[in-house]
Amino acid sequence: MTRRIGSGSLVIATHNAGKLKEISALLAPHGIKCISAGSLGLPEPAETGTTFVANALIKARAAAEASGLAALADDSGLSVDALGGRPGVYTADWAERQWFEGEPGRDWYMAMGKVEGMLQQLGPDTDRSAAFHCVLAIAWPDGEHVAYEGRCDGSLSWPPRGAMGFGYDPVFVPSGSDKTFAEIDPAEKHAISHRADAFAKLVADQFG
């Protein structure tokens, strides 16, 4: 029997205001009040895991132990079949600028270019299948935990198209569509995304 968070307060292991708002809206109908780890002054743990599940659990456990409350964390990224599943858990790292690439920060156009360059090196007939993954992990202060995995399959296109997404969205075309995630209305994207898939499983298990 899966342990349930019930109603009350839940720490969201993020320092990102946009992510807190999105998750809060999804959980509000279930009587959950979301508090960000950032607002509590909790440090961000090093994501040393080699899988999405491992990294989500690292963040959820750290927030639960530091706050004394149940905590939810997510970890997400892009896997490309022809690249052996890369960038995977290093999805965001591929966007980090090196010292010779300008001011510190993330350059997602550069990251998309890295993926495309590697695919082009493999030849014009290379499989361009890819998938976005999202893991939502809940941890309690006593160490108990549960994780939900979501996925959205598709393929990569080039050049980037659309201005409504972020990250690798401008080159990702979900299966059954001819538009990239960055060309799709955000409400439509949220209905079919990897995060929506993971949340549907969480809601069914926790509140069903």
Rank of each mutant, 00 (worst) to 15 (best):
L20C: 09
W94L: 13
Y109S: 15
A95S: 14
A70K: 06
A139V: 01
S36Q: 02
G176R: 13
M110R: 15
A130D: 11
A139H: 04
V173E: 04
L27A: 06
G88I: 06
E44G: 11
P45N: 02
A62K: 10
I12D: 02
G165I: 10
T51N: 06
A13S: 11
R161H: 10
G41N: 04
A63M: 06
A196S: 12
D142C: 03
A147H: 15
V173L: 10
Q206P: 01
L69F: 08
V11D: 00
K201Q: 13
L156C: 04
R106Y: 13
P29W: 14
S177I: 07
D125F: 12
L83F: 03
L27K: 02
C134S: 15
V80L: 05
G77S: 04
L20A: 10
D74E: 15
I58Y: 13
S76W: 03
S39P: 02
T48V: 11
N55K: 11
S79A: 15
D107K: 13
G31R: 06
L202W: 07
A17G: 02
S9C: 09
I5C: 00
F207R: 05
E183N: 03
Q120A: 04
W158A: 01
V80G: 09
S129L: 01
S177W: 11
G84I: 04
P170N: 08
D81Q: 15
C152D: 01
D153W: 12
E188I: 13
V173Y: 05
A64Y: 07
G167C: 07
G154D: 09
V203G: 03
